[in-house]
Design a protein around this nucleic acid. Structure first.
Ligand SMILES: [Mg+2]
Length: 235
DNA sequence: GCGACAG
DNA sequence: ATCTTGTCGC
């Protein structure tokens, strides 16, 4: 992929929330590109002291079920984590990783919320607006909105509603009787398409294949040459 | 003021 | 997110 427009990404401070609200206005809830198949799963792992991070991107083809391209990028994590501001901590490294990607994915599948966020800008929406690409947020736990437990069978879903009653996402049972997923569109995607896309990428694991692969790649220790050590997990 | 709180 | 070994259950 080419280059992304670097724009105001004030890490934290009193304006962090205002900036998210501002960027949320750029979110588009339009249909996913017809025939989408290249899905870029995204995740980031960090060292014990959370000072170093390793972002991973795996472009997975849903038609062939194969990996088109995968890469990762390590670097310092300068912003502390705070609920509601995850993107300020993880997006910088992830964007550097995406800039090095040669394949142009049809959509981004991120580990975290899409628009199901206090100010409508979870990390998936944040990355979508920054790159201009379609994106979906796949979170392992809820953050914002009202929801009900979906049925216990694989594929069962329920709705996530904002305080005003508007639908902002879906709770999806990806494994029979297992803990569900909280899914919401990030950018250039509808609530219905986000739900359908995640269901279409399920391959037996709790997480859809793209994010499952990115999660594993981010945590996999690098191939070490003799005297080298893993920056994230020394010794 | 109290409780909640992605990764 | 990471810290940590075995253990209970399908
Ligand atoms: Mg993650």
């Amino acid at each position: 992929m080419s280059r992304y427009d670097p724009f105001p990404s004030l890490p934290s401070g009193p304006d962090a929330g205002a900036l998210q609200s501002q960027l949320a206005n750029r979110v588009e809830l339009s249909p996913l590109p017809p025939g989408w198949r290249r899905v870029a799963g995204i995740d980031l792992a960090m060292g014990r002291h959370s000072h170093l991070g390793r972002a991973a991107v795996v472009v997975w083809d849903r038609e062939s079920g194969t990996i088109v391209e995968e890469l990762r990028h390590e670097g310092p994590l300068n912003v502390p984590y705070r609920p509601g501001f995850l993107a300020y901590r993880e997006a910088p490294l992830i964007l550097e990783c995406l800039e090095r990607l040669r394949t142009l994915p049809d959509l981004l599948m991120c580990d975290g919320q899409g628009i199901a966020h206090p100010r409508g800008l979870g990390i998936a929406a944040h990355l979508g607006v920054h790159t201009g690409l379609s994106s979906i947020g796949v979170a392992k736990s809820p953050l914002f909105g009202r929801w009900e437990h979906p049925g216990l069978e694989v594929g069962c879903t329920s709705r996530i509603l904002a305080p005003d009653g508007r639908r902002i996402g879906s709770v999806i049972r990806s494994r029979a009787g297992g803990r569900p997923l909280w899914v919401s569109p990030g950018h250039r995607c509808t609530v219905a398409d986000a739900e359908a896309a995640v269901l279409a990428c399920l391959r037996g694991h709790r997480l859809p294949e793209p994010t499952h692969l990115a999660d594993r790649l981010s945590k996999r220790r690098p191939d070490l040459i003799p005297e080298e050590v893993d920056p994230l997990f020394p010794a």
